[in-house]
């Protein structure tokens, strides 16, 4: 069942992005930025964790989950170290994504050539 929900929820989030581009004429950069902020906002109200439980990768694969993870990491450390913890923990959960993006992006750029 989780597979169906992942497909439906992930697809639906992308449809919202498509509508933002087509109807409201947002650039991809604006769409992605708003989604990250929305993800953090949803996490602030605890909605995003519920969505991950419900839809699995349908919620963790869209870029909204980046905002969610940032806030999640920040809050975990924040509860331990107070306000300073926010700065300590903010990248804790997203580390895998950012590290792999930098590493693989760099390596691919080293070994491939743009095709056009």
């Amino acid at each position: 069942m989780i597979f169906l929900y992942a497909f439906l929820v992930g697809g639906a989030i992308c449809v919202i992005g498509q509508l933002l581009m087509d109807v409201f004429k947002l650039t991809p950069a604006h769409v992605v930025a708003s989604f990250v902020v929305l993800g953090a906002l949803f996490d602030a109200f605890g909605i995003y964790d519920w969505l991950i439980n419900f839809a699995g990768a349908g919620a963790t694969v869209p870029i909204t989950s980046f905002g969610h993870s940032l806030l999640h990491g920040a809050m975990a450390e924040g509860h331990e170290h107070g306000y300073l913890g926010i700065a300590i923990g903010i990248f804790k959960l997203t580390s895998a994504g950012i590290t792999s993006a930098i590493l693989f992006g760099f390596l691919v750029a080293l070994f491939f050539k743009p095709k056009g």
């Binding site: 989780i2 597979f3 992942a6 497909f7 439906l8 929820v9 992930g10 697809g11 639906a12 989030i13 992308c14 449809v15 992005g17 498509q18 839809a55 699995g56 990768a57 349908g58 963790t60 694969v61 869209p62």
Partner: peptide, 14 residues
């Protein structure tokens, strides 16, 4: 098209 392709990427993720 956005729904299908976005959904498929998430399904692969699942």
């Amino acid at each position: 098209r956005a729904f299908l392709s976005g959904g498929l990427i998430c399904l692969a993720g699942q």
